[in-house]
Amino acid sequence: MQMPHNAFKAGLRQGASQYGIWAGFATGYAAEIVASTGYDWMLIDGEHAPNTVPSVLNQLQAVAPYSTAPVVRAVNGDANLIKQLLDIGAQTLMIPMVETAEQAQALVRAMRYPPHGIRGVGGGLTRATRWDGVDNYLNTAHQELCLIVQVESRLGVDNVEAIAAVEGVDAVFIGPADLSIGLGHAGNPSHPEVQERIQHAVNATLAAGKACGILAPNEEDARRYQAWGCRFIAVAIDISLLRQSALSTLARYRPAADAKAPSRTY
């Protein structure tokens, strides 16, 4: 059996724009619906959605038949958690709040087997190896694994050049909401200082030869970040889509007294 192909990582290498959607319902059924809609990638969120390793596994299995590539965001950079997520078959991981090159280097080691890292060998116990069905998995796994580090703090942006330069980091993903609050502009990622720091992070990432991504459900934001060089952009969030559609439908029959535009803070 051949190693499963990581279409998302291949897309990063080709430099094509890849449009993604956040999957926050933490169920395989909802994830499968999202995967059937044609987005290039979907983020199974283990940081802010109520996911566990078993629920992530359930979603990976549910979306496997579809062309939408799953990206799994861990709650943090714990090496033991990374080991579990890789063993259940996640091939692309996003790790939040990376602030130094040393953190990024530790994440790379967590994703690789000795002598290049510290990942433990699960062998026939793991879905990643298709229960020992993938030929030469131990020596070739890194070829299809993809590491995305999130830069979303003042310190992270200050160190973004060094973070992006780390060998084994495939991409940098910018978090506008956390960055804006860290810069003292809570709820206002459109503030000029925040925008300047975002553009700086994009430029530094591209200068290091790495792909840059961002979360931007607002179309105006998404197109601006794309023009700056972001090549994988999350342009939708499933929970927000449901809520906005539900409110819009109800408003046709009973106008809401407190109707307001969707938030641009994500």
Rank of each mutant, 00 (worst) to 15 (best):
G182I: 04
V172E: 04
V169M: 07
L138R: 11
L60D: 00
L155A: 15
G117E: 05
K83Q: 11
D135Y: 11
K83E: 06
E167Q: 14
A101L: 07
D158W: 01
A106Q: 15
I118Y: 06
D158P: 12
R119K: 09
G120H: 01
V157Q: 01
D178G: 01
L85Y: 08
L57N: 13
V71K: 08
N139P: 04
N139H: 13
A171I: 06
R154K: 15
V72W: 02
R154W: 05
A177R: 06
G89V: 13
A62E: 03
Q91F: 07
A110K: 08
I163E: 08
D78N: 15
V149P: 09
Q84N: 11
Q61I: 14
V108K: 07
T100S: 15
C146V: 07
A49N: 05
L85F: 05
D170Q: 08
N136W: 09
V160G: 01
D170H: 09
S180I: 08
F173I: 04
Q150V: 03
Y113V: 00
A62N: 04
N80L: 14
L145W: 14
V134C: 05
E161C: 03
G123R: 10
A165N: 06
V157R: 01
G120P: 05
Q150S: 01
D170L: 05
A64V: 02
M97D: 04
R130T: 12
T68V: 11
L125M: 14
D170E: 10
V149T: 08
I95R: 11
E161A: 15
A110C: 08
G175M: 03
D87Q: 07
L107R: 13
T92K: 12
G89E: 10
T68W: 11
D78K: 03
G120V: 01
I163F: 09
A128I: 12
D87L: 03
H116F: 10
Q59H: 03
I148K: 01
V56K: 13
A62M: 02
Q103K: 12
E167K: 14
N80R: 13
Y137V: 07
T126F: 12
G120S: 15
R154F: 03
V56N: 09
T126Q: 10
L107C: 06
